[in-house]
Design a protein around this nucleic acid. Structure first.
Lengths: 214, 214
DNA sequence: ACCTGAACACCGTTCAAGT
DNA sequence: ACCTGAACACCGTTCAAGT
């Protein structure tokens, strides 16, 4: 980071929108894997402001983390949306696409994934846009679920419950790969991972495929 | 923890086995929910030693956390073992028992669960007993899996993979209930949770029930 | 051998003060 | 209105020294 080599005479940060700059810097720090934990002072340093400046834009560290998590969630959702539009319009294809994109994102951004779903401290009620980002992520899955139910392809169980079942499986697999050393090591290589994702999807598909209710 | 051949039963902490005392204190602090994050100095304070004393027994904070996680894992495994022995000897009953105990433990000890499976920093190779505790947890499930495979009840897929599929679903559901505000709030009450666990188990059961391979 | 106390380099957060 | 700098109460970790 050469400080004297500024591409443009970018105006002093003292003016630009520091809020977004802090979020971006946080995402970059997480991506660089620089340390497991992100801290306010490091983010501020990266942006080039004093370590107290963030307090003008975020009530505390948690608020900044929530904003970063939301941005991450949106990135994942965009990725899912982009992919799911390109696959054939049947439940299995959509489900598999959702699963693959989710797992791929988790593996590519383990630390971010952690932050996104370590929401013990995050009150979604206080962050309506965060909740909205979550709905946006599941929108394509919910849509294919309803379609398949109408076609008598899968169980008539409440779609919210079905979504949670699917999310549990995919999220659980992602979490174990990312968090658990044993699993992470035993599944070295994308081919082993792809195979497991396929097995999870097959289990979900056959487990949910019925004309009655679960 | 009965020590049959311990010469001196109880002395001041300055002599007793500080290692175990620190682990116990850590578990208590986590249980009390006193703050999300556990810290070394607080644990030492609770035991009544200086904040540098732990360094005689653990290389660093991570080592203490790993020891606490291991104890937690063993508690969960014991709970699972006790329960699973009391249910009928068929795959579905065993699977449901495993799932219920796992989820129940997660909800009862969210913070501990987090610590147990936030192993990004934990090198299982350096902690053989931790790995062993994990195998112990899955032993009853693996055993019923193999039995059911022999009886042509479920898919002939490698049992390690089947275990991971099941673990993913149950762990994922637990994680979402514990970590995600939206899910946590939407599943208030044990009856809603029980219902979801049942749906997850049904999906797994029907998804895995086949005579060939997945 | 096990433990303590001072010391160091960090954090998150607050507050008075600058521009 | 937005930002800075000093200040405070904390951590994790190291090290010389005590018992």
């Amino acid at each position: 980071m050469p400080k004297s080599d500024q591409p443009k005479p970018k105006k002093q940060y003292h003016h630009g929108n520091l809020r977004q700059a802090l979020i971006d810097a946080g995402l970059e720090l997480i991506a660089e894997g620089h340390g497991a934990q992100i801290d306010l002072r490091k983010v501020a340093r990266k942006v080039g402001v004093s370590h107290t400046a963030p307090y003008r834009h975020f009530a505390d560290r948690n608020e900044l983390m929530a904003a970063i998590a939301e941005e991450g969630l949106r990135n994942l959702a965009d990725k899912v949306h982009r992919k799911i539009e390109t696959v054939p319009d049947d439940f299995l294809s959509k489900l598999e696409a959702f699963a693959r994109e989710y797992v791929e994102f988790a593996i590519a951004h383990p630390q971010l994934m952690r932050e996104m779903f370590s929401g013990i401290n995050t009150d979604y009620d206080a962050h309506p846009t965060l909740r909205q980002a979550l709905l946006y992520l599941f929108e394509p899955l919910v849509s294919t679920l309803k379609q398949s139910q109408a076609a008598d392809e899968i169980a008539k169980t409440e779609y919210v419950h079905l979504t949670l079942i699917i999310w549990s499986m995919i999220h659980g697999f992602s979490a174990l790969v990312v968090e658990n050393y044993v699993i992470r090591k035993s599944l070295q290589g994308t081919e082993a991972i792809d195979n497991m994702v396929h097995l999870c999807v097959q289990t979900l598909y056959h487990g949910l495929a019925r004309k009655d209710t679960l």
